[in-house]
Structure formats: C-alpha cells, structure tokens
Nucleic acid binder design. Structure first.
Length: 507
DNA sequence: ACAAGTTGCTGTATAAGCGA
DNA sequence: TCGCTTATACAGCAACTTGT
C-alpha cells in the first residue's frame, strides 16, 4: 500500500510556487539575458513555470509542458489559457521532449528530487549510463537522483543547439551534472548555480539551487561554474571548477595538495544491526545492547567503537563508551569459528539470528550468518587516523587502545602499524594547509561533506613536501596537545610516504 | 562465482540566536 | 525569559543499473 506521502515522493510532487517561478524567469531574463522562442517544462505539474515564462519572456511562440499526472495536465490547461501552450499527458522517461527544439529554446522546470533507489515504479529503465565499472556499478556509486537523470537527458539532447537549461535541483545534483559535463566533454558557454532556501520555498530540508546551463553552438567549453545566492544575483559567492573528473572551489592561496593518496582511506565497519552489535559495557564482561538486554560475552570479538559523533579530540585512546561486535576478519569469512572461540557470543548471535537474517542489504545475500562489511586487515590495524564524514570542518583523530579501535560506517580512516607514523599523519592532516585544501574540495552543504572520494584526493607526498616540521609543531600547539612531535618522526613518516608512493605507482 | 562499500534520507533533534 | 526561527550536528540502515 502506498500512502499519500509516498506517492508525493514517488512523483516528486512538489509544485514550484508561482512567485518563485516568476522570480526565476525574471532572473533568466534580466541577468542571463535570455529570450526564448520555445519554452519546455518536461515535468510541468500544474504549470507554474510555464505560466511565469509566458508572462515574463517577450518572444515566446510556443510553450510545451509534459506531465505524468492527468489531473495536473487538466489544471495546467485550465490555469493557463494561452494558444501558445500545449500540454502533453506523458512520462518524461518515454516522451521525446527534444523534438520541440527550435530556435532559441529554454528548458525550465523542477524535476523530482528523489533517488532512484527509493522509487518503485516512476523511474527510468536502469542502465549503467555513467559507465561505472565493477562493484561501483552495482553499489552506492550507481544510485542517482531522478532530477539528475532528467537534466542529463536534456543536455544530451541539446548538444550543439541554441538551448538554455534552467532547472531547480539539489546542489549535490548540480555538482554531479558538472562532473558529467566534464566527463562527456560537452560544449557549454556558461554554467551557473543560484542557491535558494528550499526550506522556505518547498518546506524541505536540502541545499538546493537553480542550475543554469547555456549549451554552446560552437565548441566553447566553459569549465567553471559561478555560484550565486538567488537573492543577490550580482555577487559571486564562489567559483567551482570542473576539470579532469574533479570538482574544486577556485579560491585564492589554496595549497596544491591534489593527487592520489598513496594509502587507501577506508570506511568504518558496517553491520546494519546496531541494535545487537553495538554494546555498552556495564561490568567485567557484561554488556548492554540497544534492546536494553544485558548479556555476558567473551572479549574475543569485542572492540572499542568510535562513532561519527565522537570525533571531538585529536587523540582518542581511552574512556570508550561504546563497543562493537566484529564477527569477521574479512568479508565472506565463515563465522562458524565463533562457536569454539567464544561460545557465549555464538549463543548471543544465534538466539537473535532472525534479526540478522532479515537485514535487507544485498551485500549479505548468500553470505555466512552474522556477516559484516567493511572489514579487512585494515580494520584491525593497531593505530588509525580517523575522521567523521559528517563534520563541516574535518578533525582528524588518532585512535588506538589495547585492542584495535573500530569506527562506524559514517567515518573514514587510514590504518597504521606504528604510533609515530599515525601521530605524525594526524598532525599533518590537521595542519592549516591540508584543512584549507580540504575545504576547497568539499562542499559543506552536502549531507556528508567528507567521503572516501574526497579524502583519497589528499596527496600525502605533496603534503610532506609542502608542510614543514615547524608547521606540525604549530598544529600540535593549536590542538592543545603536549609537545611530542620530533624531527625524527617527521622524517621517518616522509620516508614511508615516499616508499609507499613508489609502490603505488608501480602497482 | 565473485569481486569487496558508498551514499542518501526532498531527515531529525537539539542548540543557538534573536526579538520582544 | 519566552517563543519563535535558524544553524548545526548528527542516526543508522536500505538501496544500489557490472564485468570477467
């Protein structure tokens, strides 16, 4: 059964308020100097954008609306009694909207801001349109926003034509579109983002913008996108460059630390069963789970856990509040061994097996009972330098204790086998230069500004070359840490990075 | 058969800020 | 200090379109 709210989500049924549609059209006319002959809204709803466009622009000869909801089609025709308007009842995914292209054309609209993973039937045929490979194509990276799909389709159909595209979307979608423009080498004259407050306009909590793309009729390839606040359209807030498969904010004096990290950043452990796997210690070998059951368990599989919210100090090595059960040393490992090694833990797990078996994530299908993900040799490293993916400004923390410290799946870390390297790396990542660089390649309005992809872009070799020992001393002071970094530690770490970098290049 | 994790949730809770 | 708006910091799980 679908409740009304689900249907609203499924079809992205969030009508653009009339005043806002007018505001957008005026902006396009006054600031971007467009004067379309044809206006097309591929997901027009009750037609607020079409109505605004017909009123605001002076030379519109034809307006085309496509809408999946029949009732809205009727409403749209009723509300806009204009001979230039044609409304089609249809689905964007099957309707060839580009057949209406002629002269100067404007695509305008507000496509559904929903992820295809969350949709049930109102979605395009699933093809690997971004050309992802291997696990990426089948897991997280392949999830995408319907709005993104709509915009990319419009771009594809407009290459080389006198077309402007102006769409409301999440800023995360707009950034993905920039990456696709780069990846497909699409000629464009101008790309801009005008951010607006989607809480005010749509009563939803997402960072959003009007994405404007002017397709190029020659071969000019603009690869910078200026970002404005829609309320202050004369003031550039920032400029995002999209080149070589990467986004970064164009800022003054950002140190160039861009490259490929010679170590692999890892996401924390995943179990999709926090109720049973996350424990609080209540006494010697007694633990309480999130179902408030107190159980006696062996220490064998229990590790201290640092969650995103715990990354508040640069060194974390005691006073752990949470613990986590880690059932495997690597993915797909058999879990039967637990019966011998830790019988009480085995019983605890088996008594609650149905909970584990009803986990829906596809990564567990066909895997041994109580399987986890994001486990490997790296999970058991004695020292880690971790960071929360959620923070706007990253704080890197050194993690260690008697047993390896685990981090949850909203955090990322680098594994180390010795304290000195881990400590030095922590200081280096917290140094002003790395922080500045990271802020230039991350976007604070993202739900998760720091991801594996972003972190992997920190070239540690460049860091070692550009960040002096003195700067680490300064960082140590700024973090209120007792003075313990030595030139020896710094040199040793730089050396290790150098070697690792060579290994990476030859592998 | 199997490689070997990422990302979003048109989020939510709470703190902080502000005017009266 | 109330009561509202706005900013910030976070929960944890389900979904995920392949290529050899």
């Amino acid at each position: 059964m679908m409740v009304r709210n689900d249907i609203k989500k499924e079809f992205g049924d969030y009508q653009t308020p009339g005043y806002f549609a007018v505001k957008v059209c005026n902006l396009l006319k006054d600031k971007l100097k467009i004067s379309p002959a044809v206006v097309i809204d591929p997901t027009c709803g009750v037609g607020n954008f079409l109505k605004a466009a017909l009123n605001v622009f002076d030379n519109v000869k034809e307006a085309v609306g496509v809408e999946i909801n029949k009732e809205y089609c009727g409403k749209c025709r009723e509300r806009i009694r204009d001979p230039r308007l044609g409304v089609t009842h249809g689905n964007f995914f099957s309707y060839e909207v580009t057949k209406h292209l002629k002269d100067e054309t404007l695509f305008i609209g507000n496509p559904p801001w929903a992820m295809n993973a969350n949709l049930k039937f109102n979605l395009p045929q699933k093809v690997n349109f971004k050309g992802l490979s291997g696990t990426d194509a089948l897991t997280g990276a392949s999830n995408f926003d319907i709005c993104e799909y709509v915009i990319l389709k419009l771009i594809e159909g407009s290459i080389g034509k006198n077309v402007s595209i102006a769409m409301l979307c999440k800023t995360s979608v707009a950034r993905n579109v920039l990456l696709e423009l780069d990846r497909n080498d699409v000629p464009v004259d101008l790309v801009r983002m005008y951010t607006f407050d989607s809480l005010k306009v749509f009563r939803i909590n997402a960072s959003a913008c009007l994405l404007y793309i002017k397709m190029s009729t020659d071969d000019s390839k603009c690869r910078n996108c200026e970002v404005y606040d829609i309320n202050y359209p004369d003031h550039v807030c920032e400029t995002i460059s999209f080149k070589n498969g990467r986004l970064c904010s164009v800022k003054e004096d950002v140190p160039d630390l861009e490259g490929k990290c010679c170590f692999e950043w890892r996401q924390g452990v995943k179990h999709d069963c926090a109720r049973l796997m996350e424990l609080e210690k209540t006494g010697e070998s007694f633990y309480r789970n999130k179902n408030k059951e107190t159980v006696e368990l062996e220490d064998a599989l229990i590790y201290p856990l640092i969650k995103s919210s715990s990354f508040k100090t640069p060194v974390i090595h005691d006073r752990f509040k949470k613990y986590v059960l880690v059932t495997q040393k690597k993915p797909r490992e058999e879990t039967e061994y637990i019966k011998e090694l830790a019988p009480q833990t085995w019983k605890y797990l088996n008594d609650r097996k149905t909970v584990f078996d009803s986990r829906k994530s596809s990564i567990y299908t066909g895997a041994p009972a109580f399987s986890m993900f994001g486990v490997g040799e790296y999970s058991f490293a004695k020292y880690k330098v971790g960071v929360s993916g959620f923070y706007k400004k990253p704080l890197f923390s050194l993690l260690y204790s008697e047993k390896p410290v685990m981090v949850d799946d909203t955090s990322y870390f680098l594994p180390f086998d010795n304290y000195a390297d881990a400590y030095t790396c922590m200081l280096m990542l917290n140094s002003e230069k790395v922080q500045k660089f990271l802020l230039s390649i991350s976007f604070p309005d993202a739900k998760r500004p720091f991801t594996k992809k972003v972190l992997q872009r920190i070239d540690l070799k460049k860091c070692a070359e550009n960040i002096s020992f003195e700067e680490l001393v300064k960082t140590e002071k700024r973090l209120n840490l007792p003075c313990s970094i030595t030139a020896g530690m710094y040199d040793a770490f730089s050396g290790h990075i150098w070697e690792q970098n060579k290994t990476m290049l030859f592998s």
